[in-house]
């Protein structure tokens, strides 16, 4: 018998605490596989946010710093400047990155810090129980916009990859979705590309991943994948916006 598929060494052999059907577990696996691919587990440092993504501190099998809400890009900046030989990435959700941490992500990207951001966009605050995020779609219901997001009150969902792409310094900006095997494979290649850029000392890479939240969207895991296809992707177009 030949073993052709195994848990990445960069993931701990533990049970995931993410909600059933949540794609965060997929993101953890993709990131861990990419780190394994470059044989960088012993040099990897994840800078975690506050939000559902914080749970990954229990799953990744390498060094991590858990930052305050929104501040991961600043913490990662301080860390990477002091230890440039480590593979440093921030792992952030949409409330963390696009609301409270907007200044930190913009300036980290604008300085062209030689690190990688993995941005998990599921259009809602998961950990706190389904409040409106900067990425919540127009009309989408949340506990703080019970009649659906109203642009007159809350503005429009923020396209973070496009916003980051207005800056000069980043070398790689891309958005992928996690709703189909084909899209997951593209996301995997994008994450690898982002890490490779860092290992080659090229500069800042930003990978946005359209994810789901069956629990707070109030749909089944299967329907949440359709939601990504039918609602998220039309507003948040997929692709590599920049690949220098």
């Amino acid at each position: 018998m030949q073993k052709t598929y195994a848990r990445p060494v960069s993931l701990q052999p533990t049970v995931s605490g993410f909600c059933p059907g949540c794609l965060h577990g997929m993101v953890c696996k993709l990131v861990a596989e990419a780190i394994d691919k470059f044989d960088m587990r012993e040099k990897a440092v994840g800078i975690l946010p506050i939000g559902c993504a914080t749970l990954s501190m229990e799953y990744y099998n390498f060094d991590m710093v858990v930052s305050a809400h929104g501040r991961a890009p600043a913490v990662a900046t301080g860390y990477k400047r002091c230890r440039p030989d480590n593979l440093v990435f921030t792992y952030q959700g949409d409330g963390d990155l696009a609301a409270i941490g907007l200044a930190e992500i913009m300036h980290c990207a604008n300085r062209g810090e030689k690190l990688t951001t993995i941005f998990v966009n599921n259009g809602i605050y998961g950990m706190t129980g389904g409040q409106m995020a900067p990425t919540t779609l127009v009309g989408q219901k949340a506990t703080t916009c019970v009649n659906g997001r109203d642009p007159a009150q809350a503005g429009y969902p923020m396209r973070m990859a496009e916003i980051i792409n207005t800056l000069e310094a980043p070398v790689y900006v891309a958005r992928f979705a996690l709703n189909t095997p084909a899209n997951v494979l593209k996301a995997k290649a994008g994450i690898e590309k982002a890490f490779k850029n860092q290992l080659e000392g090229k500069g800042y890479s930003f990978v946005e991943l359209l994810s789901n939240c069956p629990t707070n969207w109030g749909v089944s895991p299967e329907d949440s994948l359709k939601w990504i296809q039918e609602k998220s992707i039309p507003y948040f177009p997929l692709g590599e916006l920049r690949n220098n």
Binding site: V65, A68, Y79, R81, C82
Partner: peptide
């Protein structure tokens, strides 16, 4: 290393990163 942070918040968090690095 010297960095001018974009805010006091970012600056102290950069210090957190450096301190964690030892």
């Amino acid at each position: 290393v010297f960095i001018q942070g974009e805010s006091e918040i970012a600056s102290v968090n950069m210090v957190i990163g450096a301190a964690a690095a030892g």
